[in-house]
Simulated assay, not measured.
Amino acid sequence: MPSLVADFHYKFHDQGSLCAQHCLNNLLQGEYFTPVELSSIAQQLDEEERIRMAEGGVLSEEYRTFLEQPSGNMDDSGFFSIQVISNALGVWGLEPLLFNSREYQRLMIDPVNEKAFICNYKEHWFTVRKLGQQWFNLNSLLTGPELISDTYLALFLAQLQQEGYSIFVIRGNLPECEADQILRIMRVEQQHRPKLIGEEEAQTSSGQRQGHASETRHGMEEDEEELRKALALSRQDMEVEDEEADLRRAIQLSMQGSLSESLTTEELRRRRQAYFDRQSQQAQPTSPHQQDTTTAGKG
């Protein structure tokens, strides 16, 4: 069996805490919701709550207190409540049901037989979804999708609950998506677990500092070699194994310009510029093949 991992991880450039948007689009496997659309739903819910509170009298203390409080459905950071998510899912005929509720526990359903879960802790939302016959953690804080085995799924959910996460089972028929169609006819393996975005950036930064120290010690000739090694290591951090490229191209669902890619590319650009500046200061010409050096993100 080939060692492949599907790259169907819908990630967006983070502005605030738009993880609810990421969560929904990862769940549905498409660019179905924007922050503006979710904000509109939140405002509608706020207005419905205001109307209900006004029924007790617009001069009442409860009504005045309600008006002074911030919205419970969204905030300035981009967070959206479960009510907003529930209304958004309702458009697709989907319903989130609390995983540890008595209503769900009475059903006695093995989690592996479900289709998807959405998880929330404080202001972070993410999706765990079955595609084909395999489960994937589609957390937007990861650099890519994480494969979860059937035997590990129940333990994974239990660990989330112990950490304080609220977990919701998604009931209803999810829309068809290309990743699901492909993974119905093949299974994938994952040799390397995805990293947290911050962890990848920290490792890139550490590699850059080590590269600079080596350049100082070994001079211009070894400086060039260290730069090539640093760029190669960065490419390895950002890309899935080369043998996984066929499935990535087949699925073609990952978005371009994710946060981890844009930041890492900028770091590499600065690395190259610093190197060329040092060369210029020592009156050494820049070799043509260095100018052609590029880094590739995930496709």
Rank of each mutant, 00 (worst) to 15 (best):
S39K: 06
E244S: 11
S262D: 14
S140Q: 01
E201D: 13
E241P: 12
S40G: 15
A158V: 11
Q105Y: 08
M255I: 13
T264F: 05
V5I: 15
S258K: 02
L227G: 01
V84I: 10
R64C: 15
K115H: 13
R171S: 07
E95W: 11
A116D: 00
R187D: 12
A42C: 07
L253E: 08
E55V: 09
R52D: 06
E226I: 07
L153R: 05
M220G: 11
Q236D: 14
Y121L: 13
R52Y: 09
T294C: 11
S287P: 15
M1I: 14
G219S: 05
F80E: 01
G90L: 02
N137F: 03
P145R: 00
R52S: 09
E62Y: 08
N113I: 13
T264K: 04
E266C: 11
Q252H: 10
Q290K: 11
M255Y: 12
F66M: 04
D237Y: 15
G207E: 05
E47S: 15
Y275N: 01
V112G: 02
L259P: 10
F12E: 00
A88N: 01
R271G: 07
Q273L: 09
G164Q: 02
L227N: 02
G144Y: 00
G72R: 07
A202Y: 07
Y121V: 12
R171A: 07
R217T: 11
E200G: 14
V188E: 03
C177N: 03
I167F: 06
G56A: 08
Q236C: 15
R269Y: 13
G57P: 04
G164V: 05
Y104P: 06
A296W: 11
K298D: 05
F12P: 02
E224T: 10
T151Y: 10
L4D: 01
N26S: 04
R187V: 12
L131W: 04
E55W: 07
K298G: 08
V169E: 00
S166G: 08
N137M: 03
S81E: 04
G72M: 11
E267D: 13
L233D: 03
Y32K: 06
Q203H: 13
F80K: 01
F79M: 03
N120E: 05
G78L: 02
Q210T: 15
A179W: 04
L38H: 02
E176P: 08
A202R: 05
M186D: 08
R249W: 12
I148W: 01
K130C: 10
T293C: 14
L59N: 10
T216D: 05
S60I: 06
G144A: 04
Y104N: 03
R272S: 13
W135D: 00
V84C: 07
L94M: 00
H9L: 06
A42P: 04
E123S: 10
A179M: 07
H13S: 12
L174E: 00
D76Q: 07
T216L: 09
E201H: 14
Q290P: 15
R249D: 09
D150P: 14
R64N: 12
R209V: 15
R129W: 05
A42F: 03
R193H: 10
D237H: 15
D46A: 09
Q210E: 15
Q279T: 11
S260L: 05
E225Q: 11
N120C: 11
E215K: 06
A116F: 04
G299I: 09
A116H: 00
Q44G: 14
E55R: 05
R193W: 09
E95Q: 08
S81Q: 06
K195G: 06
Q210W: 14
N25E: 02
Q134C: 10
H9T: 05
T286S: 09
